[in-house]
């Protein structure tokens, strides 16, 4: 870790790089934002924006379960619950009884409500309020390692399954006829989203995580005309917003997560303006 720190100090001779917490935050940004950029493209394509939001809300219940079971590290119960939650949601969605957005909304509100009821018991909710906006500045080296692990997993998943996923997002019946195991794939994708959201929620925050997933991909869609561009622009915009937001929040003393979202939103609106001229 100290080697990485030294390298960072050499490359970036700015005052904010003197601080370890800024180095950690920057490293975390370098991992989280490309991840969100990649994942966001498919979430936007599959119209799953609301799905990832519901997952974020389920974090409350996951933590509440951990608290009830008396776990010292509630992130374990949080991740496990999110995976179960995502699979359950997918299962009910597939039974096609109610429209998808309704069922997701039901799950989202229930996930938040159960968590809030348990966590706010004894008036202790304030302890968990940092889940809402996140706190990237308190990330430690070990947790960056965890993020890196999920980063690798995602890249592997992407390189092996991208074509099938893409096929599925265009037309599921067609994908099935091409012998793509859509159900399995859909579930794998849901699990990956759940893992990434749960591992980054403490740093990014429930209120902000979805914006970070959607905004870069949506901006990229405004410009890109093929899949390669779509991905590349999305990752670039995501990285750009993350790093610029972090630096701006340092100098202006603002909360980091929301600053990043504002930058990403600014990029989105500008691409929206630029869209007619490039396409």
């Amino acid at each position: 870790m100290s080697i990485i720190y030294e390298v960072l100090e050499k490359i970036l001779p700015f005052t904010f790089m003197q601080y370890d917490f800024m180095k950690n935050a920057l490293l975390a940004m370098l991992i989280i934002t490309p991840l969100f950029g990649i994942l966001g493209t498919m979430i936007v394509n599959n119209r799953m924006a609301f799905f990832s939001d519901a997952l974020g809300h389920s974090a409350f219940t996951g933590i509440a379960i951990g608290v009830i079971l008396g776990l010292t590290d509630t992130s374990i119960s949080m991740v496990l619950f999110a995976v179960i939650f995502a699979l359950l949601l997918n299962w009910i969605k597939r039974r096609n009884t109610v429209s998808t957005d309704t069922i997701i909304s039901v799950f989202s509100s229930l996930g938040a409500a159960v968590g809030l009821v348990v966590l706010s018991k004894n008036g202790q909710f304030a302890k968990y309020s940092n889940l809402l906006v996140g706190d990237i500045l308190s990330i430690t080296a070990r947790e960056i390692g965890l993020l890196f692990a999920i980063f690798i997993v995602t890249i592997v998943f992407w390189t092996t399954c991208f074509n099938s996923l893409h096929g599925m997002s265009i037309n599921e019946t067609l994908a099935k006829s091409k012998r793509i195991k859509t159900q399995l794939l859909d579930n794998c994708f849901a699990i990956i989203i759940a893992l990434i959201i749960m591992l980054s929620i403490k740093w990014v925050g429930i209120l902000i995580i979805n914006a970070l997933l959607i905004l870069p991909a949506a901006s990229s869609r405004n410009l890109a005309s093929n899949m390669r561009e779509y991905h590349r622009f999305s990752v670039e915009i995501s990285l750009f917003s993350g790093i610029l937001g972090l630096i701006l929040s340092y100098y202006n003393n603002t909360a980091t997560g929301p600053t990043i979202v504002i930058v990403a939103a600014a990029v989105f609106f500008l691409t929206l303006v630029a869209k007619p001229f490039v396409k």
Binding site: L223, S225, F233, L244, L248, Y251, N252, V263, A266, V267
Partner: peptide, 24 residues
């Protein structure tokens, strides 16, 4: 497109830096 994206990024950075300079 590449150019447009870079221009957008430069523009946002400029605004951000500007705001920082004013507020700092």
């Amino acid at each position: 497109k590449r150019f447009v994206l870079l221009a957008i990024m430069a523009f946002v950075t400029l605004i951000g830096v500007g705001i920082t300079a004013v507020c700092s």
